[in-house]
Design a protein around this nucleic acid. Sequence first.
RNA 1: GCCCUCGUAGCUCAGGGGAUAGAGCAUCGGCCUCCGGAGCCGUGUGCGCAGGUUCGAAUCCUGCCGAGGGCGCCA
Length: 564
Amino acid sequence: MIREDLISALHRAAAACGAAAPDDLALDVPRQREHGDWSSNLAMRVAKEAGRNPRELATELVGALEAMDLAHVERIELAGPGFINFHLAPTWVHDVVRDVVERGAGYGAGADLAGRRINLEFVSANPTGPLHAGGGRWIAAGDAIANLLAIRGAEVSREYYLNDTGNQLNLLKASLAARYRGEPLPDDGYVGDYVVELARELRDAHGGDLADDDLCELGLQRIIDGIRSDLERIGVQFDTWFSERTLHERGDVAAVLTLLREGGETYEHEGAEWLRTEQHGDTRDRVLVRSDGTTTYLCNDLAYHRDKFARGFTHLINIWGSDHHGQVKSLQAGVEAVTGQVDEPEIILGQLVRLVRGGEEVRLSKRAGNVVTLADILDEVDGDVARMTFLLQSLDTKQTFDLDVVTSQAMDNPVYYVQMAHARIASIARKATDAGVDRRPIAEVDLGPLRHAREVETLRKLAVFPDVVADAAAERAPHKIAHWALEFSGLFHGFYHDCRVLGEDDDVTQARLWFNEACRIGLANALAVLGVSAPETMVRLDDAGDDADGDRGAASPAPSGVRE
RNA sequence: GCCCUCGUAGCUCAGGGGAUAGAGCAUCGGCCUCCGGAGCCGUGUGCGCAGGUUCGAAUCCUGCCGAGGGCGCCA
């Protein structure tokens, strides 16, 4: 591919000029088209340490590059303070088509994470109630990040940690028992309607004589089933559901305590047992065993993370809401004390979702009826819409999830813009087949006719997809894929508007059929990373009302507006 | 008080050392004998403020202002 060729050429040119090019040599697509197809700041990067004037060095580099007679390169210019700009013949994008088609579903894949066994823990909401709407962000992001890591070669395991013991669960038990027996809720009890409903369901199914423990177990199971159901609806499959109880039952918690005590990492103070986390970078020491003898969340979590390493993972990643950022140092310090592993687990912090309905923020009030669950959202929009909405924004930005916009105006949702592009691509291929126009083997097809500005621009964007994937994976930033998909779809819609595939001269049709196929691959791969379906057809807006259950096939996302 | 994250167009957000800062929505105005108009094209006095580092800062550093979050033997 052209990018690798140019980078390689730059390295050779640098060597020829007596300068060493850095490993992370920048080769970018300039914002201004006049600045060429690709641009490098190599001269400016190395001028200082080489003791050279940037423009002078760049002149020399350009000379060396010109002497290489590089494929597709029409002109190399020195510009501005020392940029080296490559102007390519439009033919370079033809190689992009061939490359994409050849790689197929593997286009965008890489091996930079090969050999890594990564455990990605996300969601992990306490099983004391249904998943909150805001939790959808962690679900969508976690699944997409897992896909990103996998596509770059890592072996990724998605894990859900069930905190099925401890204070929160006791509180659930007390709350459930109170509702079940019609007694007043305990202080700080769970006031949500779901507890009332749960109590009623359990009474209906098992009568009114359940003991508190049984009540709690049955309720817990129902809540977990509900969480699983929500995750299924949004299309996320976890590899492992890890129960905190097993840590206690197997003696893992006791074992980690013994380990730490033997290592001299703990001490007694005011009746509690503390871990010297400050020695490992925390702001202060933390309690492992309370004065009542119970272990803290941190203590249990250390046993948990020790277990993850014991299962053979080489790297651990947790996705947390930013409201937990205060625990990052403590956990990492503790894990270092337990395992010796530094900077583990990696914590991806995401800003919380701000829910807005009717122009007003839906506060996470403890008052019943004010909690918006993920299931509520999925009742109104399909999983693709929810996912795309969550994924469009950087995890660093607190997200405003406007329920009115996402639900009642679902037609404007960017996900349909992207899916429509994919459906159009599929439609063109279908029409070609119906018309008896067969796509000849790409090796026999001259892609020369692909020189329309729409085609070239679309292929330029397609060409950077692997770079975007690599960057998104390294940054744990799935929104970059969402934005690429959006931009790419826009370019394809532009092509579709201005260019026709069928009904043109045969050589044009053949070239464009392959262009179309390359676009399909790129878009499908991007959607696969996002976990959003790539439909062959869309349900027509004007058909949706009276024929929502038509024969369009399961792949067709039903516009949410169909439902009242 | 200390710590973390974030302040970019009317709104929601990209861009996070490179050359003239972008998109969607909204506004206003164009485009349908056409592979599906859920489309295309045009329309923009914006990087919170002040210093600093650099050949170059929206981007990195410091301070201030503003928003959110965190500072438990809760999770």
